[in-house]
Simulated assay, not measured.
Amino acid sequence: MSTTESNSLYDHLELADTTTILKNINLEDHKVPQAVEKALPQIERLVDEIVIRMKKGGRLFYIGAGTSGRLGILDASECPPTFGVPHDLVIGIIAGGDKAIRKAVENAEDDIRQAWVDIQSFGFNENDTVIGIAASGTTPYVLGGVRIAGEKGLLTGCVTCNLDSPLASAVKLPVEVVVGPEFITGSTRMKAGTAQKLVLNMISTTVMIKLGKVKGNKMVDMQLSNEKLVKRGTKMIMEATDLQEAQAKDYLFKHGSVRAAVEAFYQK
Rank of each mutant, 00 (worst) to 15 (best):
L252Y: 03
A170K: 00
T206Y: 13
I94M: 05
E28C: 15
S169W: 10
T4M: 09
V142G: 00
V146G: 03
G64N: 02
E28I: 08
G84F: 08
F124P: 04
I91T: 07
L167E: 00
D98G: 08
H255E: 11
K213L: 14
Q196Y: 01
V36C: 12
Y10E: 05
S121V: 08
K152A: 15
A35L: 10
G92M: 12
T82C: 05
H12G: 08
L173K: 11
F265I: 08
E14G: 15
R259N: 11
I112A: 13
P41D: 03
N127K: 12
Q34C: 11
P81Y: 03
R259V: 01
K268S: 14
L173T: 06
L224F: 11
E126G: 10
E106S: 11
M202I: 14
T194A: 05
S121A: 15
L27K: 14
T138V: 13
H12W: 11
V117L: 13
V179R: 01
I237H: 03
V171S: 10
M54F: 07
M1K: 09
L200R: 00
I112C: 04
G123K: 03
M202P: 09
A95D: 02
I133N: 02
M54S: 09
K99W: 06
F183N: 01
E245P: 07
L224N: 09
V199H: 01
G64H: 07
G69Y: 02
I119K: 00
P41E: 05
V36A: 05
G84P: 06
R259A: 07
L27I: 08
D98C: 07
H255P: 00
T234G: 01
S187A: 15
T3P: 06
A76I: 09
F183K: 07
E176W: 04
E239P: 08
A16L: 15
I94Y: 00
E106K: 14
P181G: 13
F124V: 09
F265K: 12
L211G: 04
T194Q: 08
E106A: 12
K249A: 10
I184M: 15
F61N: 04
E49F: 07
D110I: 10
G123W: 11
F83E: 02
E151T: 10
V32A: 00
L155N: 01
V142C: 09
I237T: 00
K249V: 02
K99L: 13
L13T: 02
I52M: 09
T67L: 06
